[in-house]
Write a protein that binds this DNA or RNA. Sequence first.
RNA 1: GCGGGCGUAGCUCAACUGGUUAGAGUACCGGCUUGUGAUGCCGGGGGUUGGGGGUUCAAGUCCCCUCGCUCGCCCCA
Length: 415
Amino acid sequence: MAAKLQPVRGTQDIWGEDARRFSWVVDVFRSISSRYSFKEIHTPIFEFTDVFARTLGETSDVVSKEMYTFEDRGGESLTLRPEYTAGIARAYMSEGMQQFGVSKLASWGPMFRYERPQKGRFRQFHQLDAEIIGAPEPEADVEIIAMAHQLLMELGVGGDVTLHLNSLGDKESRDNYRQALVKYFSKHKDKLSEDSLVRLDKNPLRILDSKDKGDQALLADAPSYADYLNEASVEFFTRVQLGLTALGIPFTLDPTLVRGLDYYCHTSFEFITTALGAQGTVIGGGRYDGLMEQMGGKPTAGIGWAAGIERLSMLLADLPQVERPISVIALGEDATILGSVAAYYIRLTGRTVDMAFKGNLKKRMQRANKLNASHAVIIGDDEIEKGIAVIKNLDSGEQQEVAIEEIVEKIVPET
RNA sequence: GCGGGCGUAGCUCAACUGGUUAGAGUACCGGCUUGUGAUGCCGGGGGUUGGGGGUUCAAGUCCCCUCGCUCGCCCCA
């Protein structure tokens, strides 16, 4: 056990400047998702273990070694959510959202994965999530990718990130390709890396993005995904690309981009940066038309993405200025009461007010300065006697005396 | 889960080849005319040098274990 009071490995306290970055990312996301007509949804952070185990694929790394799974006091096996989609799909069915036709859902919150922490990789991390459920059309893919792109642009990180795009095709295409791949690599088992030998058995598609030199040499002659997409899959993918091009959203075709979770098909995409070392994926997503059926529901199309809030936060260049407060400086008991009242009424107008509780005038002026206050309202014994307050403009240094009843009406228009 | 690097005050760092009470800047608190924000000057609190064990007359400095961070693999957001 840790001797000091420290957060659990892979978790962190988010405060100060980090908290500002975090909130800014969430604020921009909520603004954009609302403009794209998404509705916010919040699902529990834990679910029955089956919700994740059955949908993500028993052999996936997430399920086999990264989930926080525990038995509750009633003997149920529960799991802290390691990703968003399965839980939202479950909610979609639990709440009977089929009745609404297409559902566009947005969410944000914590995820949990037992991984070895690294820069941009935590055990509790936070994601933004967007899902369009019930829309099998490629235009849905275009819209949701456009939304991700816009998020990056509005956050000001767009320039550092490139969109990688691939198609896994429909189930038929995917199965055919997988077979071809297994057949090819089985002939070259002796040359495959240790990791890829395991992949060959568990998830052969993953060999495609291996970083091993030997594997990459083999890949040069491996069957190409594009040759195994059937006509419908090719047509679908073409429409996605046309749509993105029409919107002027640049992308790179990346045939090695295969996603690790079982439920993906057709469009697969990642926004990748080189600024975060090995954890370069900032937004990742794809289509999952088979998921609902896999969970025991009716066949329902779906597409979505998730973004790492911490990763986005690390890429932010500038943050918007915090709103400048008004500092109320009240000296003495009587003045303090008046000051509280003034602060209260100024806040009712929507302005931010800071009031220090102690210190002489100099100290409080210093505090006002550190907070970047626009004005100070000074009330002391002298002012009370005259029934006034002093309003000081902290940029110009000008002071004016106003009647105590007029503080609010004098200061608000000015700021 | 595998391999490498690092770990000194809130933050950024110092302390020659192991050698006396571990320093500085910054931040914080207070003072320099008891009612006005800069700079400056003075003072203060704050570290069992991540933790534990070992070697040594002597360890922040060497060795081992452990915790944490970090880089790569893996995985992914």
